[in-house]
């Protein structure tokens, strides 16, 4: 057996889970789909004293639509996100991004909440949450709070979650009809972690100029980033090859702490970031209607 020893508890309700997390503090780790946590256990990079399995808690795996928002429970499996008709229709960027998350056997177990809370800088979901201005619903034994995605991802594998807190849902505003969207990434093989990726949402005004641009980068820095300077430069401009090229160059400048490892140097990732932003903007502008 590879993992270090730990205790395991299977709460049957959310309040029970939150009480356990409150009592045990940082030594207890919530277990969602396990597709990030169990590798860390097998490699002994994580040594929790207690795993709190969320899979048997009713109500954490629902997909709901309410007032222009799609709400996904934290335990919604990635495979469900990929296939859900409501998500495909209202938030196609999320469905498309899911096809890039690992492989089907990973997505059969992995959850949207687990991926967001793990905050791998190369993962797709955190960048999608940023690009779509999602809100993360966080509960503890004593309170509930809602954290905007742009305040949630703090650093490498680090979020705004405090010990005792649990991500229970993500609320995604449905983009207006006609919004253009795209996700582009560069990875060694389909399903590998991105060496550089970009998720984009665009809205076009009646005169063909860009009314709103959201550009999120992943796989290039210690956390997913919004390329705000590039977004501002594009807003009010016609979406042309020229304006897109300029925005892509500006987006690269948003990378403040570039990742650099055996899979890709900082210089390589920065160059690829420019390429994926350009491709994503081109694809999104083709999809955008007025």
């Amino acid at each position: 057996m590879k993992p270090p020893p730990f205790d395991y508890i299977r709460p049957r309700g959310l309040d029970e889970a939150l009480a356990i997390l409150a009592t045990h503090g940082p030594d207890a780790r919530p277990l969602a789909g396990g597709q990030s946590l169990i590798p860390l256990l097998n490699l002994r990079l994580a040594r929790p004293s207690l795993l709190v399995d969320l899979a048997f808690i009713p109500g954490l795996a629902d997909v709901q639509a309410e007032n222009g928002t799609v709400v996904l429970g934290a335990m919604v499996r990635q495979r469900t996100v990929e296939r859900d008709a409501l998500i495909a229709q209202r938030v196609p960027l999320l469905a498309e991004a899911t096809r890039l998350v690992g492989h089907p056997p990973i997505r059969n177990r992995g959850t949207i909440g687990g991926s967001l809370a793990h905050a791998d800088p190369s993962a797709e979901y955190p960048a999608i949450a940023l690009a779509l201005d999602a809100e993360l619903v966080v509960r503890s034994a004593s309170r509930e709070r809602v954290v905007p995605a742009r305040d949630f991802f703090v650093d490498l594998f680090t979020t705004a979650l405090a010990p005792g807190e649990l991500l229970t849902a993500v609320r995604i505003p449905v983009p207006p009809p006609g919004a253009g969207w795209a996700i582009q990434e560069i990875a060694r093989r389909h399903g590998d972690f991105a060496l550089a990726g970009a998720a984009v949402l665009l809205r076009q005004a009646g005169d063909g100029t860009c009314e709103h641009a959201a550009i999120a980068l992943f796989g290039v820095a210690t956390r997913p980033l919004r390329a705000t300077a590039a977004e501002h430069a594009l807003t009010g401009q016609p979406l042309t090859a020229e304006s897109i090229r300029e925005a892509a160059a500006l987006a690269v400048e948003a990378i403040d702490e570039p990742l650099s490892d055996v899979h890709g140097s900082a210089a390589y990732r920065q160059r690829m970031a420019g390429a994926v932003v350009r491709r994503a903007l081109e694809e999104a502008s083709r999809r955008a209607g007025t």
């Binding site: 490699l43 056997p105 177990r109």
Partner: peptide
């Protein structure tokens, strides 16, 4: 650690990595 797929089994009809499941 979930990379090679040799341990794939079906859980309730869906393929999963049995090394990434307790």
């Amino acid at each position: 650690h979930g990379v090679c797929g040799a341990c794939t089994v079906l859980i309730d009809g869906a393929a999963v990595r049995s090394c990434l499941m307790l």
